[in-house]
Nucleic acid binder design. Structure first.
Lengths: 202, 202
DNA sequence: TCACTTATCTAACGATCGGTAGGAAATTAA
DNA sequence: TTAATTTCCTACCGATCGTTAGATAAGTGA
């Protein structure tokens, strides 16, 4: 059987370049012209290889989660909640200010709000963030079972709290806040981590 | 002198309606057609009364800061840092989930990322957020001078930390997180507020 | 060499983008 | 009534949006 003309560009490299554009400009702010220009391919090549803008974004998002966003899963594998929080906060501070990538977090700034056409992308990102928080919650539940956290701890609240700090750091990074500044926020959060209810003494 | 034909719509009401649209869809996601439809006016009326899309957004942003976002300045006027933080966290949880408005915070989700055309709007929002953090920092500096915070406290770090939590809550709200959930985050942050360095005992 | 398959490109599609010209309508002052 | 002023609406502007048709080029298998 015939194999056809071989592709002249590297799909994964092109996807990485698309990721940079979406990361910097968001889903709506990134035009097809922006993407093709950065990716070094023509529009028909983009559509042939990736489907359409929405599919391209989802593929870039998968690549983001497995690549620059991979520190999240690494953090979950740490042996105790202290190490989980430290890794999450410091690696996040590093990731959202990595000079090799646009500032901020794609899952936060990819489509925090949007027009009607991008609604499903926004929902996808909402789901991804929720999934991250859920993973964190399950990790903390395990820690309670292991005795790493006191029995009365609320894993869900701790996960929501830590997620909020991480997302807040991502917002600040998107606005140009420096890595040093974010590390101070991380350090401050770790001073009182985990923020547990004090045992009542009566 | 002649006064001309009177305007048939209320400029402030139209501005409030425009604010709702920008709040829900962001600067880029809100089209002129979206805006005129919601505002109940035609395009030439919009341009005649508000200049252009960018000016309209800036005016809506001013209205946001003085209206739904007014709790921020109220918080700064509280008599001590405890009250400031409590008001900021709880009122923010309420504001970003107010059923009378779109979820989230306009200053965060109006243009966290964008295409080239909206870059100046993004910068405007970066400046506004930075101004809020600066106000908070100055408030904490005052608290140090007043003895409300220990002499060694870092007002800048405390302001950055609290800002991050507030912005993180705004991100969560934009994704549909409930008011109750956000109140739990606020409560958790307040458990350990302010997160100061422990005095060394050597 | 020839059919087959797939990628390449130029050029265009209809829809929507933000923004405006130009004239009718409504008001006030004379 | 008339002139002056301002808002109103319809219709349109050029540019860009995401997307695709259609022809050509480059490879494989027979």
């Amino acid at each position: 059987m015939a194999m056809g003309r071989p592709r002249e560009f590297d799909v994964d490299k092109a996807l990485d370049l698309a990721l940079q554009v979406f990361w910097r400009k968001g889903y709506e702010g990134a035009s097809i012209a922006d993407l093709t220009e950065t990716m070094g391919i023509t529009k028909p090549s983009l559509y042939s290889a990736f489907g359409n803008k929405e599919e391209l974004f989802r593929k870039a998002l998968d690549r983001y989660v497995d690549g620059p966003g991979g520190y999240f899963q690494v953090a979950l594998a740490k042996p105790n909640v202290r190490a989980v929080a430290e890794h999450l906060l410091y690696e996040s501070a590093a990731a959202v200010t990595d000079p090799d990538h646009p500032p901020g977090c794609l899952a936060v700034q990819g489509a925090l709000t949007c027009g009607d056409a991008a609604e499903s992308i926004k929902q996808e990102l909402v789901s991804r963030r929720a999934k991250g928080e859920q993973d964190l919650r399950e990790r903390f539940q395990r820690a309670i079972a292991e005795g790493d956290l006191p029995p009365g701890s609320d894993a869900a609240d701790l996960a929501a709290y830590l997620s909020a700090i991480l997302q807040g750091m991502a917002v600040q990074a998107a606005g140009g806040t420096s890595r040093e500044q974010l590390r101070k926020i991380a350090e401050m959060a770790l001073r009182t981590w985990p923020p547990l209810v004090k045992a009542r003494s009566d």
